[in-house]
Design a protein around this nucleic acid. Sequence first.
DNA 1: GCGGATCAC
DNA 2: TATGGTGATCCGC
Length: 666
Amino acid sequence: MNLRDVDDALDVADEVVPVDAPPQAAIAPQPSQNHSLKHSLLGPSLTKAGQDAVDQKKVAEIIYDASKGSKFFDNEEVKDRTLTVKIERILKQKAQLEKLDLKSDLRRADDYITSLELSRDLSQYVVHIDCDAFYAAVEEIDRPELRNVPMAVGQGVLTTCNYEARKYGCRSAMAGFVAKKLCPQLVCLPLNFDKYTAKAKEVRAILAEYDPRFESSSIDEAYVNITEYCDTHHIDPDAAVEQLRKEVHEKCKITISAGIAPNAKLAKICSNKNKPNGQFRIPNDRAAVISFISALPVRKVNGVGRVFERELDAIGIRTCGDIYAQRAYLHRLFGEKAFQFLMQTHLGLGRTIVQPAEEYERKSVGTESTFRDISNKNELREKLRHTAEELEKDMARVEVKGRTLVLKVKLHTYEVFTRQVAPPRAVHLADDLYNFSLPMLTKLEKDMPDFRLRLMGLRCTHLISTRKDKPNFFRQRSSNAKSADQENGEWEVWPDSEFEEAARQERQQEFDELERLSQEQPDFDPQSSTADWHEPFGRYKYGSEPNSPVARAGHLRNEGAANNKSGAEQEQQWDCPICQLPQPANDRDFNGHIDLCLSRQTIKEAVAEARPDPLRASPDVLSVSAPGLPKPRLSTKRKASASTGVKSGLSNTAANGRKQKKLFFT
DNA sequence: GCGGATCAC
DNA sequence: TATGGTGATCCGC
């Protein structure tokens, strides 16, 4: 189901919402019926995983009525209005662009497509595993009588619900009282993280049989590369995954859904295809990939949320196939990152690397909490104090200090503000956290006319390790983590710091020295002066690509790190993916070289030869092997795992001992 | 570098 | 009666 379908479903002879009204106008009462707002209120899980059995129109009306009049609702209306205005601006901008000569934009897009196509890797079998209604399923093991009644886990806000409850339109992230309106007999259970964690551990033990380097992306999701398993066991991917799912079902008593595809992005989409308790495969075949992706609504792709969906819809992009026709506009309308992301999405490309979550690096740690509205100054200080103490605990747990401190507040109106400060020294103790954030709070207090808060949070970024002892891989992990995600080994979203730190032991002294320096010079940046920041053990880093392959960022819409600037880059060289020759290791020069490389005659011929005939209905018939072109060199690690693409991920290739700028799609 | 916004789970 | 918490990253300034 795409946005259009939803709008059709919601079509009830509405008044038209004026698009040119300023956001502030939303404070005034709105027409009772508003397509996009209702769509928004339906929640994010609607279009990701289909809820086709439910009467969406009715559900939308109930949610709308239940929410109407609340401050939450008012704020949603403001956001909806703001987005409508923004989309108007995009449309105007596009109309302007249509008058211009976009030949160079078009060529740029086509050249990029060609370079992407040249690097396509179809050698891997990547599986995405997704446990069906995980928390609810675990609860049902202990209480089978709940299996056939609508049930949800989580009280204030539903964390998940079983399929029985979904028939009524209930879903995760929905407010409890709204869910009860949809389904009065809904049973709500409290969260029991220990139970889910234990079950997740059972499941991951099975995944490890198929791929010891599988990657958990959350407590109930994982990526497994079964290429090698299929090879050594002489089994095809479908059968291997059938077997894996059967094994999980029998041993763990829960069902899982799986997607099998040549890369992680497609696998993730596939796992939703036959949910629950099913699997779906896209063969490792370009034509199959293209035919699958072409008809796929963009909303199904990780990284396209409700906002981007509406923006794309406005310029005529609803499916991934629609992207191609708009390729000349994307860069100017949405920026470089979104352009690359959309081009890669259109071609069905994604990362083929699967690696343990431990190998990703934490960049911030924070805590926040919601409470009844508070405006009293002393009470607010108490809240800040409490928040600081909570953060100290968290920072002790992951053994870091922060060089930047961020205060977040949410007003009673649901408006969010953040303020940050760089204390003269790295901080982690509650006293420091409190003292350095208090001025930010008091200033906000002073500046805001009606400073009533419903939420307060503190976060530290620019982290510095405080670990002093020798790393020990077998050390007992701390068990007092606040959430299951942080508590458990291979399933956790974020690596335990000792794992990261183990890999950094050789930098410890350097760390200490840098920290000392940072305390003397607040602006000093350890990362920009550390010669070889990554991989003392030759491990790979592919930029920051944490839990989810497609960057979990609104505007990122891309995978991997954009700002993976290491000081090491300056002395390093990167290999050009086209000509294979080493190039200066900085983004500008490197990209410049790639442009040059791409514009060479051989490439031009390839482009001309491979470029789809614009008059043809299906533009996606690029020949993979362009004659006369060198094949991109692929890493042989884990069977040509590699990566290509044009994202600037930096990895340390142990073989040649120098940094290689890898191109990858992740 | 900062603050707002978006996205995922 | 009343709509979460944690973390990442992008964009515009």
